[in-house]
C-alpha cells in the first residue's frame, strides 16, 4: 500500500513526536530519580535493588538538611546573594548599557570589546586575584565577598543583554521627556526602564540564576558555615567516607526547585536571553 503525501507527512509527524518525547524523558530522568531518592527511606536507597518500588516515602531527609546541615541559614544567605547580585547587576549594568546605547564616546568600541573579552575569562581565574583582594580586605567568610565575585562576573553579561534593548527605545520619547524638564537620570528611570522591561526581565532572570547557582566563589571564599549559601553547603555534604545520598538528593531538589519555578515563570525571557548572547 502506498501512502499519500498527506499520510506520509502524518506518519513522520507522529514519529517525530515519539522521538522528541523520548529525548525529553531522558533529560528529565536524572532529576526524577533525584526527587524519588530524596523521598525514599535509607534502607530503600542503600539497597541492592534500587529499581524496586520503595516501601514508603518520607520527608526525613529534608528535615535533616535543616537540623544537621545549616540549610536554614544557607537559604537566607542564598537569597541575600541572589537578591544583591540581581539588584547591583541590573542597576549598574542597566546604566552602563544605557550609556553605551545613547552616549557614544571615543573608546566605546574598546570598552565593548573588553566586555566581550570579559565573557571569555575563566571564572576560576578571577578567583585568583579576587581571593588575594578579599584576604587583604578581610572580607573572606562573608556574603559580601561572594556578591562581589558573582557581580563582577555577571555585569558584562548584563550590559551585553541590555544594550540592544535600550537601542530599540525610540530617542523621540526621551527627547519629549527632556522637554518636559526631566533630568537625564529621571528620563532613564521613568521612561526608558519601563520601555525596556522585557530586556530588564531577562537581565533579572540571569542575574538571579548567577547568584543562586554560583558555587565557585562561595566554596573558595567561605569556610564558615554561617556565611555559606546553599550551593556550597550542598557540596560540603559529600565530604567524608559515606555519602548521605538521601540528604544530598534532598538538598539538590531544595536548591533546584526555586530555580525551576523562576525559569518556567519567565520562560519567554529565558529563551530571549539565550539568543541575546550574540
Amino acid at each position: 500500500m502506498k501512502l499519500t503525501r498527506q499520510g506520509r507527512k502524518r506518519v513522520f509527524t507522529v514519529a517525530n513526536g515519539v522521538i522528541l518525547t523520548v529525548v525529553a524523558l531522558l533529560m528529565a530522568l536524572p532529576l526524577v530519580w533525584m526527587a524519588l531518592t530524596s523521598l525514599k527511606a535509607d534502607p530503600d536507597i542503600f539497597s541492592a535493588t534500587p529499581l524496586a518500588a520503595p516501601e514508603s516515602l518520607t520527608l526525613e531527609h529534608y528535615e535533616v538538611l535543616f537540623s544537621k546541615f545549616h540549610f536554614g541559614q544557607a537559604s537566607i544567605n542564598s537569597v541575600l546573594i541572589a537578591a544583591a547580585t540581581t539588584l547591583i547587576s541590573v542597576l549598574l549594568g542597566g546604566l552602563a548599557a544605557y550609556g553605551f546605547a545613547r552616549y557614544p564616546w571615543r573608546g566605546a568600541g574598546i570598552a565593548i570589546a573588553f566586555l566581550m573579552v570579559a565573557r571569555m575569562v575563566t571564572p576560576a581565574s578571577l578567583v585568583v586575584p579576587l581571593y588575594a583582594i578579599m584576604r587583604t580586605l578581610g572580607l573572606l567568610n562573608s556574603v559580601t565577598s561572594v556578591v562581589v565575585g558573582v557581580t563582577a562576573l555577571n555585569l558584562p553579561f548584563v550590559v551585553w543583554i541590555l544594550r540592544p534593548f535600550f537601542e530599540s527605545v525610540p530617542v523621540e520619547v526621551e527627547e519629549a521627556g527632556e522637554l518636559d524638564g526631566l533630568t537625564p537620570l529621571k528620563v532613564f528611570f521613568r521612561i526608558v526602564l519601563p520601555l525596556a522591561k522585557p530586556g530588564i526581565m531577562t537581565a533579572v532572570l540571569y542575574s538571579f540564576l548567577a547568584g543562586w547557582t554560583d558555587l565557585l566563589f562561595p566554596m573558595t571564599f567561605v569556610t564558615a558555615p554561617d556565611a555559606m549559601p546553599l550551593t556550597s553547603a550542598l557540596l560540603q555534604m559529600q565530604t567524608g567516607y559515606k555519602i548521605y545520598w538521601g540528604e544530598v538528593m534532598a538538598g539538590g531538589i531544595y536548591l533546584t526547585v526555586p530555580a525551576l519555578i523562576i525559569c518556567f515563570a519567565l520562560q519567554k525571557h529565558l529563551v530571549k536571553g539565550l539568543r541575546a548572547g550574540f
Binding site: P30, M34, W212, T213, G251, G252, I253, L255, T256, L270
Partner: peptide, 19 residues
C-alpha cells in the same frame, strides 16, 4: 520540557548524575 536540564543548578545536576 527541554528547559529542565538548563534550569537546574550545575551542582544539583552533578549530584543527580552522580547518583
Amino acid at each position: 520540557a527541554y528547559i529542565l536540564p538548563f534550569a537546574v543548578p550545575a551542582i544539583a545536576g552533578a549530584f543527580a548524575w552522580k547518583m
